[in-house]
């Protein structure tokens, strides 16, 4: 009898992993990809309890209009396609008004709008910012952070910017973009590992394919795979360990400004250490050479960061606060992507 090829088992396992993780991933993405929720739930925004109750009523009205979902409610032998099972009393005024006749039978199924629980306001309600205010992160180290912020400001704009101008003057654009692609390609393990840690197997596959293609054709100096259509959209900035920690539900902790590296938080600092462990330069010998090359390539990459920093600091009345808010919001957006 023929024995099954060992690869067969691997393929079956991978397929199973894909099947089980696929829906979980889709659910996570649901947070950012549900345009239909906005059109209808937006009006419910508001801070008071009354508004929250109205939100609930509004969303239930919509379910009444959608018979396919609504029919599930109140049947004892309802099909178990939709899984949320609730023992609590009727969550909306619409149903509570009917009295005992409309009370749910045991085992009835309540259908809720994607991810929103009773009384919850949709995450972004086009509001007037009456509720949300104040800083996005705790900053107990502010005086210390402000010191390093000023230090970095002088370093970035007073030293690095003129030196980079000189670098731009002596090198052709093609060389700079080639080196930029090379660094991006070398950092492939960071993106790959973190896609896996976030159960984004398709994205990890895309990163792997791009790495192979770029490495084999041009040793990473050209980004030939950039324009190729991928099976899933992949964040061009890639995943890193700070985002993985955020994906796992870990908060930022407090804000920290590091000399040279700039804005960070406790979580992002841990993230950087994780990325360092996945960076190939960490394992190359002699280490002096490896880290000089790494530093040089990072310097070459400054043109994507310096103008952004300069703009933000020129446009803001208190650049320290502006940078803090922008950095934390930017990182939070990346976790969602």
């Amino acid at each position: 009898m023929r024995r099954a090829h060992p690869l067969f088992a691997v393929i079956v396992l991978a397929a199973m992993a894909f099947l089980f993780c696929g829906p979980a991933q889709a659910k996570e993405r649901g947070v950012s990809m549900r345009p239909s929720a906005y059109g209808e739930d937006v009006s419910a925004g508001g801070s008071s309890d009354a508004d929250a109750r109205r939100a609930d009523t509004v969303s239930h009205r919509r379910y009444r209009a959608a018979p396919a979902d609504h029919e599930l409610r109140g049947r004892t032998r309802a099909p178990r396609r939709i899984t949320t099972r609730r023992a609590e009393p009727a969550p909306s005024l619409t149903y509570a008004a009917g009295g005992a006749a409309q009370a749910f039978l045991p085992g009835a199924i309540t259908v809720r709008h994607k991810g929103l629980s009773a009384g919850e306001i949709p995450p972004d309600e086009l509001d007037d910012y009456a509720i949300s205010g104040g800083p996005v992160i705790a900053d107990p180290l502010e005086p210390w952070n402000r010191f390093w912020f000023r230090f970095n400001d002088i370093l970035y704009l007073g030293i690095l910017k003129p030196v980079y101008r000189g670098w731009e003057y002596v090198t052709p654009r093609e060389l700079r973009s080639g080196l930029k692609n090379f660094l991006h390609n070398v950092l492939f393990p960071v993106r790959f590992v973190n896609n896996l840690l976030q159960f984004r197997f398709l994205e990890a596959g895309v990163e792997f394919g791009r790495f192979m293609m770029n490495t084999m054709i041009s040793a990473g100096f050209m980004d030939l795979a950039k324009d190729k259509k991928t099976i899933v959209p992949v964040d061009p900035d890639g995943e890193d360990f700070g985002q993985t920690l955020g994906y796992w539900g870990i908060g930022h902790g407090c804000y920290i400004v590091w000399p040279l590296l700039g804005p960070s938080s406790i979580r992002e600092t841990v993230g950087r250490v994780g990325d360092w462990a996945a960076t190939p330069f960490t394992y190359l010998q002699p280490w002096e050479l490896a880290w000089s090359v790494n530093g040089g390539l990072r310097f070459n990459d400054l043109d994507s960061v310096l103008p952004m920093y300069e703009d933000l600091s020129a446009a803001s009345v208190d650049p320290y606060i502006a940078m803090r808010e922008a950095y934390i919001n930017y990182r939070n957006e990346h976790v969602k992507k």
């Binding site: 910012y129 949300s132 205010g133 104040g134 800083p135 996005v136 803001s316 009345v317 208190d318 606060i321 502006a322 808010e325 922008a326 919001n329």
Partner: peptide, 11 residues
């Protein structure tokens, strides 16, 4: 608006 708001509140 949110970014400026935080700056102005702080000031």
């Amino acid at each position: 608006v949110k970014n400026y708001r935080t700056q102005f509140q702080d000031i």
